[in-house]
Design a protein around this nucleic acid. Structure first.
Lengths: 145, 145
DNA sequence: TTAATAAAAGACAAAATAGTCTTGATTCTT
DNA sequence: AAGAATCAAGACTATTTTGTCTTTTATTAA
């Protein structure tokens, strides 16, 4: 698995937040219910994202979490880096600690293109983009049935 | 990390075997020494590969393991599938259990191309190819220094 | 000001992955 | 036949990831 579950949950929760009124706080319970994952676990994930300034939180009644910036200003890359770190997807396929042009693993030349592509997708995709895609999907599902 | 350590060790050991006289048995101890990894752990990995008919083994003096087929007949994909299974790299980035055209995750359209590319690299790369690349690299290193 | 709501913090538990070691089964050499 | 070499099998431990729960802190509303 390329991304950890923690990271995937973080991404999905961000997308849900972006699909709503962006400046409104949403409780973690609502998010975990909608994602059908453990409330406790999601709490930890989102706490981490709050510390990383991707989300902001508010305690007490009507509190919850929301995106710290506008959804189009948060890239998928920001979330992935904050949770899994950069190494997770930039690390060498063959597990070599250093893998670059000077010291390539036997797959390097073929793989580097893939990694570039991957990086550019993560950089080029915003939470807003994912949210729009999700909304579009729902409409499409409706039209199809 | 895309591939598990188990899988990476299995790949690297296969490449070492291919770099030698292919029909000669090599002891696991030699392989683990060369790869600088745990002998015990590598033993388990290679046992698994033997069961999967990627390697064959022979007990006793002058025994060891060797490739079960010629190096150009073993694809990287064979090793990865045998150890990590297919799901490991074909699974959805966003963690959706079903993710296809009919039921895409919000990243599906962008990601599918990447997965295709990845699959084709794994299918198109043989252990022999990796071994040759390794040998070439050594020569290059010599020439550079 | 008290009670209720909700995140923060951190302890604890379970599962998956990675790593270590011992014993047993073969096979070779002498 | 005996001893050494080597993989096979499986028990055991350590680490990382994932998941659960309790207590504390901040905030609101009555």
């Amino acid at each position: 698995m390329l991304l950890s579950k923690t990271c995937i949950y973080g991404l999905r929760a961000s997308v849900l937040l972006a699909m709503r009124n962006e400046d409104q706080y949403v409780t973690i319970r609502e998010l975990s219910d909608e994602l059908e994952i453990s409330f406790y676990f999601l709490t930890k994930v989102l706490q981490h994202m709050t510390k990383a300034d991707i989300l902001e939180s508010y305690k007490g009644p009507n509190g919850g979490v929301r995106l710290a910036r506008e959804a189009h200003e948060i890239r998928m890359m920001d979330v992935v880096k904050a949770i899994d770190g950069e190494l997770s997807f930039k690390s060498c396929v063959m597990g070599q600690s250093e893998c670059d042009m000077m010291n390539p693993c036997p797959l390097h030349s073929k793989w580097v293109e893939l990694q570039t592509k991957m990086t550019s997708i993560m950089n080029g995709t915003t939470i807003e983009g994912l949210a729009k895609e999700m909304k579009g999907r729902s409409v499409k599902t409706l039209l199809e049935n």
